[in-house]
């Protein structure tokens, strides 16, 4: 049995790459996710979030690199990993003819660690009727059922792939609260993907921004928000920026206005900027997760 020890890594990716014929969906991703933390994958549609999560659960075989989930290779030790991971896919793939209690019975028979009391509790919490067929459930209810099935075997790692996509605000709130409750009750590791920044900000301790298959940044959310700043400088008449500050993610010059976003804003960043550039006034702007994400994407596009 795998147990999360303090400081143990729940997920370790090294140069993880997935190619589909000529298309590279995930390119050289390396990151570690400590056990007991919540990690949010942030990226646009088609960025490679789903492909990465599918490689973590062993549904896809990496083209290059390595994935290590709870100390095991998801391809070589697929069964072992699946027994200790709860996965909620983006597209619900449950057999539509199954009734809720049949889906529960089916999953119960394949997980040795199935917890009946927890399952009943979750079914009650999410108001899922045992006799209803999956095809007669709303999208939100199917996601909730999928979450019940993913959690009832008491996994050590939960993978949620865009769980809130397409849900109405009430179902979304119920689901987020449900997930937060589980995170509080049990010391599990959560890895989820989303392109909704507010969800990431609420749930994640650490965020990974992914774009066109590449991991642009991987940092704790608080650290990212605290240290990523946009500097708005007014350049001297007729002057151009001489040197970008260290850790510049993106910059734009429009007339005399110079906007530059930096990743590690410190007390001396402004002084160094002033010393190296002909600027008249400087203003520091706090950024939200959305703006930070956009600046990372724009910066990556400009550099590539």
């Amino acid at each position: 049995m795998i147990k999360n020890e303090p400081n143990q890594q729940a997920v370790e990716l090294t140069g993880l790459t997935k190619r589909f014929k000529n298309h590279t969906a995930v390119s050289d991703i390396s990151l570690t996710i400590p056990a007991g933390t919540a990690f949010g994958f942030l990226g646009q549609n088609g960025a490679g979030k789903t492909t990465t999560l599918k490689m973590l659960i062993g549904l896809l075989r990496p083209s290059a690199g390595e994935a290590n989930v709870l100390g095991h290779d998801p391809v070589a030790d697929g069964l072992h990993v699946k027994q200790h991971v709860g996965y909620v896919p983006e597209q619900q793939t449950m057999h539509r003819w199954m009734r809720v209690h049949e889906a529960v019975r089916f999953c119960r028979s394949v997980f040795p660690t199935w917890n009946d009391a927890l399952c009943s509790d979750l079914l009650k919490r999410f108001n899922l009727e045992a006799g209803k067929r999956v095809k007669h459930l709303s999208k939100g209810m199917v996601v909730k059922l999928s979450l019940v099935l993913a959690l009832s075997h008491e996994p050590e790692l939960i993978l949620l792939d865009e769980p809130m996509a397409g849900l109405d605000p009430i179902a979304r709130e119920e689901l987020i609260e449900g997930v937060l409750q589980i995170l509080c009750d049990r010391a599990v590791t959560l890895v989820f993907s989303s392109h909704t920044l507010s969800d990431v900000q609420r749930l994640a301790d650490t965020v990974g921004m992914i774009h066109e298959g590449r991991l642009l940044v991987h940092r704790p959310v608080d650290d990212l928000l605290a240290k990523t700043k946009r500097i708005r400088a007014v350049l001297a008449d007729g002057a151009a920026p001489a040197a970008q500050p260290d850790g510049a993610i993106w910059h734009r010059v429009q007339n005399r206005e110079w906007l530059v976003t930096v990743r590690d804003f410190g007390p001396d960043t402004i002084d160094r900027l002033r010393a190296a550039n002909p600027v008249e006034t400087v203003e520091v702007i706090d950024l939200g997760l959305e703006e930070i994400f956009k600046d990372y994407v724009k910066g990556w596009r400009a550099s590539s």
């Binding site: 062993g58 069964l79 699946k82 597209q91 793939t93 449950m94 057999h95 539509r96 394949v110 997980f111």
Partner: peptide, 14 residues
Amino acid sequence: ADRSAEFTAYLPIP
């Protein structure tokens, strides 16, 4: 074809 293969694939079924 009905995508339910993925459901059984991510469960620990040999």
